[in-house]
Design a binder for these strands. Structure first.
Lengths: 380, 380
DNA sequence: CTGAAAGCGCTTACAG
DNA sequence: CTGAAAGCGCTTACAG
């Protein structure tokens, strides 16, 4: 039995850059025994930061200056084809990787973008993150994820933290801090709002038309013959919540149906708040026959409450949600909802942000993506 | 009507550090009109990176050297109380923030920890992330989130990317790359495995006892009188999946029930795979009367399949899941499952990692946290 | 197209 | 307890 393999060893002195040895070994093991399994175990030493290869080493071996190596690495055109090839050859041989800490420091950039969002556990944001991430990675940027747990204080703190880190830009998927502060932030550092937006200031934004979407949802319920429609809103300090209430009101007004205050109840986007509010609705004299919830999570809470009270959905009561999270098709009956192009929103927001970072002119500062009513089984 | 407010302006020349002016203004506006709303709009200029305050500026104003300022900032004890106070005073006045890019470069650290996970959309990992994050932030570390989308290639790529960035450590919540590579990685850079583990190498790990947990789940079904129990496994290249099968086998063997190959079907942790496999089970002659799914997602898929086929759960068939994600209580009937201390696992993993980074000795290299069988409504 | 040299803003070993 | 000075590993304006 014979086993052969090759390995490469690199030796480098701490100070003397003229001493880089690249040694390739061929190792052959012969034995008379049969070997069924071979565990080859190299005890690789901790990568010693003090003897890592530097640009200087590459430069010496390639007989050029570090300036040239740097130019090759940054795809600067001012390098002759021949020189570039030579340098690249050495870089490959040594498996040299430039020190990002140094270059970022030098260039005053971190090649990192922060995404600040209210709740990472919410699958709605998971999709947004994926969009952001794919677009960022494609352009060599990393993502710093900041989950504010719905707290304005956390939101402010993160914007500070993140500035100290020299992140190159921020995507705000939550915007609960005062409008003025968000505006100021956007003057200091590239900022794009995703999902949310800020009134009266021109901050780059990607979102859907929440008013129209909510109006359509409500109109659909009206079309089904419902007259007593309750709305479970998101927290009213966030603007998309208010927009959805606005759309709800518009729909009713257009049909000359009076808006009843009792039918407008404020939740907080959580399952529990949907459940609690639904219970309240069900306990009242004038029960609504249909519910429009401002998030799928709340709709699911409401659905649960109905079931617990022995009501059949949609026969006794119709429910419509908002967001179209994957869960919608897992519950019974499947949830009718308004779908937002989540992944696309993430992509677009990141594209916009990278454009701002690159100081390109934006053709459009406000992008409104299309939503869609998805009729499933909780409405009739 | 009269409005008064104060604001502070800081002026600094690019080169001449002796020229820092801090000016406080008091501004008063008087008017005879009634003012209901006042929008005060300062056009704050983009924070110019080239004139940002530096340590040198602080040092000059405090009449000390930058070395001393640096010592104050890093809580080095070799500074007299008086000097420290003086420096701190100036730092506060100027609202000076040290340049993290510079100090990280100098110290060869990034104060960042990477968390590599298979799927950010899975609420199971969201909880783990929260644990990691809280623990990291508490210690001044940032989190770089890397979602591999269940791809081994992505996993490898991220470990490379992340090394280039000088992250101080890595938490692997997925471990599908070859054992040897993971081991090598752990020799180069601090690594802690969360959820998964690697056989035969001593890599710091936080997990539950998957074998025992799976055995208990199966035993519970056996206790309910089930004899034909199917298992929907996770991908068998991941070790926790194999462990759960092992526990399942143990339970059957202990009761002298023969293990049938057909009853062991491999899924991929997704809802869809649970659905598909359940359909396959239901189409067979010898239907199982109970299902143990290796993840809640797959259990939910299976539940859905049963409903679609008109079967009642748990009367016709029992289902038990794994993980205890929030969704469990949202579906009907609520899902019986094995609960993992997700948040705690994240915390512990991060604590361990930070200990390794600080070069503290670990009392324990393998932490096994307790799991718990949670009986709800899908089993009887 | 290329190189010598300055400099980014800190930290730290050394000397006092 | 404090400071002068070197140096971390790059990039870039400048000169040729």
């Amino acid at each position: 039995m014979k086993i052969a393999f090759r390995y490469r060893v690199m030796l480098k002195n701490k100070k003397n850059v003229d001493n880089i040895f690249v040694i390739d070994y061929n190792l052959t093991i012969k034995t008379n025994h049969k070997i069924n399994m071979v565990a080859i175990h190299f005890n690789i030493k901790k990568q010693r930061k003090d003897i890592m290869l530097k640009m200087e080493d590459v430069a010496k071996l390639a007989n050029v200056s570090t300036a040239t190596v740097s130019r090759v690495l940054s795809n600067n055109k001012n390098v002759s084809h021949k020189t570039r090839e030579k340098v690249l050859e050495i870089i490959n041989q040594l498996e040299y990787k430039p020190n990002k800490l140094a270059s970022n420091f030098r260039k005053k950039t971190s090649e990192t973008v922060a995404v600040i969002l209210p709740d990472i556990e919410n699958p709605f944001f998971a999709e947004i993150i994926k969009g952001c991430r794919d677009e960022a990675l494609k352009n060599g940027f990393h993502l710093l994820l900041c989950d504010t747990s719905n707290s304005v204080e956390q939101e402010k703190e993160f914007t500070e933290l993140v500035k100290e880190r020299f992140v190159d830009g921020i995507i705000l998927a939550t915007a609960r801090m005062p409008k003025g502060e968000i505006y100021n932030l956007s003057q200091e550092i590239p900022v794009v709002l995703a999902c949310e937006y800020v009134e009266s200031y021109e901050i780059p934004t990607v979102s859907i038309d929440n008013v129209t979407a909510a109006r359509e949802a409500t109109e659909y319920l009206l079309d089904q013959g419902h007259k007593r429609i309750g709305i479970i809103t998101g927290p009213l300090e966030v603007i998309v919540s208010r927009d959805r209430v606005k759309g709800y009101r518009q729909a009713l007004l257009l049909r000359d149906i009076p808006v009843q205050d009792f039918f407008i109840q404020e939740g907080d986007f959580s399952v529990k708040s949907g459940y609690d509010i639904m219970m309240k609705f069900l306990a009242s004299e004038q029960k609504p026959t249909a519910i429009f919830a401002s998030s799928d999570a709340m709709a699911l809470g409401a659905l649960k409450a109905c079931k617990n009270k022995g009501l059949r959905v949609p026969d006794d009561i119709s429910i419509i949600g908002f967001d179209d999270i994957p869960l919608c098709t897992l519950v019974e009956p499947e949830l009718t909802t308004i779908s937002q192009p989540k992944y696309e929103m993430g992509c677009q927001a990141m594209k916009m942000l990278l454009n701002i970072i690159d100081k390109n002119d934006l053709q459009q500062k406000q992008i409104v993506l299309p939503h869609k009513l998805i009729i499933r089984q909780t409405t009739n």
